[in-house]
Nucleic acid binder design. Structure first.
Lengths: 188, 188
DNA sequence: GGCAAAATCTACCAAGAGTACGAATCGCTC
DNA sequence: GAGCGATTCGTACTCTTGGTAGATTTTGCC
C-alpha cells in the first residue's frame, strides 16, 4: 500500500488541491500514509522535489513534442513549444510553484540542469556543425530556461496578459536571439 | 544604536561572512542587537530580503551605469552592462543567494519586478515610438531578468566558464533577441 | 499456538521564525 | 535630587515544520 508511484501521484494530488505551501505532513496524510513511510519510500523533501520535477519536466516535454509535431516550420514549432510549456505549467501551477519554491537549494539547480540538458546538446551540436565554438551553448541554455521560468512564475502569480500572447512574445524574443546559434536552431 | 542603515550594513556583513544560509539570529548577533530589535527596526525576514534586494539592485544599477558610460556604441554598452551585472553579483554572491533563496514567496516577485521595471519602461517606450504595440515589453523584461538571474545563479554555484565569456555570450543572445523591440534597444 | 523478524506508527527532537512579558532605563514632575 | 509613569529592550518562550528513534503491531514460519 506504499508504492513509490502511488505516493508521488498522491503528493501531486495534494499539492494541486492545497496549493504549493503544503507541508510533508499534509502530503503524508493525503496519501493515507505515515510520515516515516513517506521518508523511507521517497526520501527527504529535496528528493521529493527532485522526483516531482522529473514528472513535471516529462509532462512539459510531452506537450512540447506533441505541439512541435504539428508545426509547419521550425519557427512556428518553436513558438508552439513555448506555448505548450506555458500551458502545461499553467495546468500544473501549484506543482510548478512547489517545485520552484524549494528554490534555495539543490532542487533548483537540478531542475534547471535537467531542463537545460537537451538544449545544451542541441545548441552545442549546431555550433559544432557550423564550425563554431560550442561553449556558449551552456550559457544560452541556462538563459532560455531562466527566461521561460521567470516569465512563467510571474505569469502564474498575476496573469498579466493572455497566455498565448505571452508565449508568442517570448518565443519571438528567444528565437531571434538564437538565430546566431550557428544554423537554424531547429525545433526543440 | 539601532539605526536601520547600520542594521542593514551589518546584515550584509554577516551574510557575506557566513554565507547565504545565515539565520536571523546570526544576523542579530552579528549586529550586536537582539532579535526583537531587528524585527522592530526592519520587519520580518521578507522585509529584510526586500531591503537587501533594493541595495543589491542599486549596486548593480550603479555598476551598469558606470560601465555603459564608457561604451563606444549601444551594443558594446549592452554587453558591458551585462558583464557589470554579473561581476557585481559575483562580488556579492552570498547576498545574491540569500536574497534569491528566500525565494518561495513575495521577495522573489519583488526582486524581479524591481529589476524589470526600468526595462519595461524602456522597451515599452521604444515600441511606442516605433508605432508598435507596447504590451510585449513586460514579457521581454521578465525574460531578460530571468535569463540573467538563472545564468548568474548557475554560474555562482559552479563557475562553469570564464565570467567575461559568459557575459559576452549572454549579451549577444539577448541583444539580438531584442533587435525586434522596435528600434535599437539603446543602452540599458 | 508461539516466536522471530520485518514493517509501521506514535511520539519525539531540532532548528528557526516570530513574539509576550518582565526588567531596566529614561524623562518628567514636584 | 527623589519618585513615578512611559518607553525601550532582552530573555525566554511559542509554533511550525523537517526529520527520526523506539515502541508496537503485523507477518511469516515452525
Amino acid at each position: 500500500m506504499a508504492d513509490r508511484e502511488q505516493l508521488l501521484t498522491a503528493a501531486m494530488r495534494v499539492i494541486d488541491a492545497h496549493g504549493p505551501e503544503v507541508t510533508l505532513e499534509d502530503i503524508a496524510a493525503g496519501a493515507s500514509v505515515s510520515k516515516p513511510i513517506l521518508y523511507r519510500t521517497i526520501g527527504d523533501k529535496d528528493a521529493l522535489i527532485a522526483a516531482l520535477s522529473e514528472t513535471l519536466v516529462d509532462r512539459i516535454n510531452a506537450s512540447v513534442a506533441a505541439a512541435t509535431a504539428a508545426a509547419p516550420d521550425p519557427a512556428a514549432g518553436f513558438e508552439a513549444a513555448i506555448r505548450a510549456s506555458l500551458h502545461t505549467i499553467q495546468a500544473d501551477k501549484h506543482l510548478f510553484l512547489f517545485v520552484n519554491g524549494g528554490a534555495g537549494s539543490e532542487s533548483f539547480r537540478r531542475l534547471v540542469d535537467r531542463s537545460a540538458l537537451d538544449m545544451i546538446e542541441l545548441f552545442g551540436a549546431s555550433r559544432a556543425r557550423a564550425g563554431l565554438d560550442p561553449t556558449p551553448a551552456r550559457t544560452w541554455a541556462y538563459a532560455v530556461v531562466g527566461a521561460i521560468q521567470v516569465v512563467a512564475t510571474m505569469w502564474v502569480r498575476d496573469e498579466f496578459a493572455d497566455l498565448d500572447d505571452v508565449g508568442r512574445d517570448l518565443a519571438r524574443l528567444i528565437w531571434s536571439g538564437l538565430a546566431q546559434v550557428g544554423d537554424t536552431p531547429a525545433e526543440t
